[in-house]
Design a protein around this nucleic acid. Structure first.
Lengths: 226, 226
DNA sequence: CGGGAAATGAAAAATATCTGAAAACTTTAC
DNA sequence: GTAAAGTTTTCAGATATTTTTCATTTCCCG
């Protein structure tokens, strides 16, 4: 899946169309906001992003992405109308993996995308998360314990995913609420406990991988503890 | 650089002091006017702001900031004495990124600041603190002595962390109480002693790194003493 | 020595988490 | 549009663990 963030609709549609006919899955966004919303749901394997966007600039978005450990590994290619050396350096320094100056040809775009994917070539590894007997296929939204599939609800799935993505790191209830429920969630902090319980129950034997860290929160470790 | 706008001088100084010892650059302001003047000169990476200020209220300041495209992206954490739900919603609706109710502990403040910075995407913290045989991984919330893991409770962990963060500096009981228990803690000063004891016990051999400085408090040194 | 400061031991108080169950809310099916 | 099913949230004990207190002993330094 490739995300394209570009406010010019013509360019955006053209890029999406080209990507799709080349065999990629692709979705376009006109502004940073809708893009970020989508990011919550699915991690793309590459991001194409215009430097000039209405509201939040592409550079800001880039900085955010590269500063967030969940997203920093997604390769980003910046698109821009400016071709001055200054902007180029700026873009690369911000952590972009490549840089394309408008107007660009579709063939060039494709070959650059392939080059970046080849270079960063780390696909796979975010799609399936594992811990002990628990295995999660993020894209298919499926969880298996010891070879048997387990049905999880949305919140349970997100909870497990976040814990798996942060192996060994203790996540506080606040952090979990913030990331899964949204930063403006105003409900009980106990809610997390209840979901952890149902998660442990449903995971059966595998449930023991979720450790309680008293006074702090929860985490999933590497399983070399008692 | 972090700006703190708070009219209570005691709280302000305490916050600034804590931020500085944690590795942030920080400046405090007693009113909205001086704060706005400083804003002209330099953009901070985060703003801590009391809701109740003499003259212009914190909410007004917040509204101004979030309405100005130069400043709208600077994360803001509101401080307030009121804990009613109404105020909370008000603060978040105004565009604040987080909200802390007084009285708050310094450790909580720091972790909230880090959370907001993480969310808005800057900074990276993979903190591992060490002293002699003792090694602490802050994110994993784990402590190791001589290769063996030691389980610490919340307060013990915080205590050890603060001492490790202030290598070679003697921390008074008051300072420890203030930072870990919160600035309004009114209990016994002896409480610290008891926690130091359990900490030393649990750390076993490594426990000797915590020195008692008679009449002052405790510290963790570089270990080249007896 | 003597007096204040710190360490100890052990019990009381305070807190955090888990549990079971019901209420509130969503979605799906008819 | 309503009923049924499923999901999420809240709540009130029960339980386990941590934190605090306090009386006592030991230690350090003048």
């Amino acid at each position: 899946m490739i995300y394209c963030v570009e406010d010019d609709e013509n360019i955006r549609e053209l890029v999406i169309y080209t990507l799709k006919t080349t065999g990629f899955k692709a979705v376009g966004f006109g502004d940073g906001e809708s893009f970020r919303a989508a990011l919550q749901e699915e991690k793309p394997e590459l991001i194409l992003m215009d430097i000039m966007l209405p509201g939040e600039s592409g550079m800001e978005l880039l900085a955010r992405l590269k500063g967030d450990r969940h997203y920093k590994n997604i390769p980003v290619i910046m698109l821009t109308a400016k071709s001055s050396e200054y902007d180029k350096v700026l873009g690369l320094d911000g952590g972009a993996d490549d840089y394309i100056t408008k107007p660009f040809g579709m063939m060039e775009l494709i070959s650059r995308i392939k080059a970046v994917l080849r270079r960063t070539g780390q696909r796979e590894d975010t799609d399936v998360l594992e811990a002990g007997k628990v295995r999660m296929d993020v894209d298919r939204h499926e969880v298996w314990v010891d070879g048997a599939q387990v049905a999880l609800t949305y919140k349970e799935f997100e909870l497990l995913k976040l814990l798996l993505l942060n192996r060994n790191i203790v996540l506080s209830r606040d952090r979990l609420l913030e990331d899964i429920w949204g930063y403006d969630y105003t409900g009980e902090t106990r809610t997390v406990d209840v979901h952890v319980r149902t998660l442990r129950q449903k995971l059966g034997e595998g449930g023991s991988c979720i450790e309680t860290v008293r006074g702090i929160g929860y985490r999933i470790g590497d399983g070399h503890e008692a």
